[in-house]
Design a binder for these strands. Structure first.
Ligand SMILES: [Mn+2]
Ligand SMILES: [Mn+2]
Ligand SMILES: [Mn+2]
Ligand SMILES: [Mn+2]
Lengths: 219, 219
DNA sequence: ATTATTATTTAGATTTGTCTAAATTATATT
DNA sequence: AATATAATTTAGACAAATCTAAATAATAAT
């Protein structure tokens, strides 16, 4: 099955957001792809028609087996190109994502496999994320880190280690929940507090205690 | 100026067909891009609007200085990727064109220049065609070969060394003219005749004498 | 149980790139 | 010069991917 660039980007985003087996919601995909929810609904109908996702109105989206297979191929291409850019063309790891976002859509299987071979069949990309093999087999993604130890600027909230309702309430009020993407604006050494920002919201600062409880993964 | 993939393909085709300074005609572009003349006219209006081509109804198309500059960038990317595929990924020279046709549209300047460096700044691609440098400077294209000495399967007619009207008439009747693309089907050793084919026409055989007069360039 | 808020979908429109069929212009032939 | 043929353009349509604004459904708050 040959997909358009737009379809591939959707499939990849759904794969990314569908951690474990939760159904992915429309708004999350729209945010991830920097588009509008209405566009996501439109595309959902097409991808369902092509049997790449399961989708019922208002019920969220999950990849079918076929969709997941394709997603893994795209992820494989993306991460292999990232390796190439860093290892062979001396790019730094923060420059490669955008470029790989385009290169991943060049579909030749032979190209991808030759590239992998050329790179010595790497198993992780420059960001530590695992690279699926030619059969789509992928090792479990890297373990989570607490926000206070994270080293990247853009992060995704993947869990909270302290389940106290007071903390959760605070986070909820601030708009922080599972899957929320945050940008680290600044880290203050004097008290190890961290200033963070969520898209379309004002930046705010959280204490070291809080930052220790937020489990994140780099994006 | 950021171009779409379609626009880039048109610009590149016009560059390719516009050898020297002849205006390129609609049908030639349509043939080259495997599309319809009506689509070429539509695109011509857009490219004129963007000041990448000079175009007046029924008068053919030529690149502007700006258009030529962009064409050379695309050609540069295409040929560098072909080098990469052959030299680094062990592709054979007849497999690389299609893939490079996609890779050429990844626009990052930094990527192209790093790639060139990585390859040792090559000056010709696997087909012997010159690679423009980062400033768009390109060495004159390789000299033409007569059809009987050509080594590639797909060729473009670039001239005729014998201008006798009888020969030209014959060629004209067969549909062979400047810019015609031909495929070599077979070469017969017993009399050095060559069976060739033009798109959408039945294959036919030409004698050694004729094949010596047809000047071609590999595609 | 209402009401307010948020998430999602629908309806209708736009842009890009393409097509077919018909009309027009240019070129070649008689 | 008239006519036939070839090249090109126009008119009208379509699919893909997107958007805005309005309608609807689900969820949360009172
Ligand atoms: Mn992409
Ligand atoms: Mn990565
Ligand atoms: Mn191309
Ligand atoms: Mn080439």
């Amino acid at each position: 099955m040959k997909l358009t660039v737009a379809e591939e980007n959707y499939i990849k985003s759904i794969y990314k957001l569908q951690d474990g087996s939760t159904a992915v919601n429309t708004n999350a995909i729209a945010y991830e792809l920097d588009t509008k929810p209405a566009s996501v609904t439109d595309m959902a109908k097409k991808l369902k028609e092509k049997r790449l996702i399961d989708y019922e109105k208002y019920q969220g989206i999950t990849l079918t087996t076929e969709g997941r297979k394709l997603a893994l191929q795209i992820v494989r291409r993306h991460r292999l190109w990232e390796c190439f850019l860093v290892e062979k063309l001396s790019f730094s790891w923060d420059e490669v994502h955008e470029i790989a976002e385009e290169l991943e859509h060049v579909g030749s299987e032979k190209l991808v496999n030759r590239l992998s071979e050329f790179l010595g069949n790497p198993t992780t990309d420059p960001h530590g994320d695992p690279i699926p093999d030619a059969q789509g087999k992928i090792s479990k993604s890297k373990q989570l880190v607490s926000l206070d130890k994270a080293t990247t600027r853009r992060l995704e909230v993947a869990g909270v280690s302290d389940q106290s309702s007071a903390l959760l309430e605070f986070l909820h009020a601030k708009g922080v929940k599972l899957g929320t993407q945050i940008d680290v604006i600044e880290r203050y050494e004097f008290d190890n507090s961290v200033e963070i920002k969520i898209k379309n919201q004002p930046a705010f600062t959280i204490s070291e205690q809080v930052s220790k409880t937020i489990m994140v993964k780099p994006l």
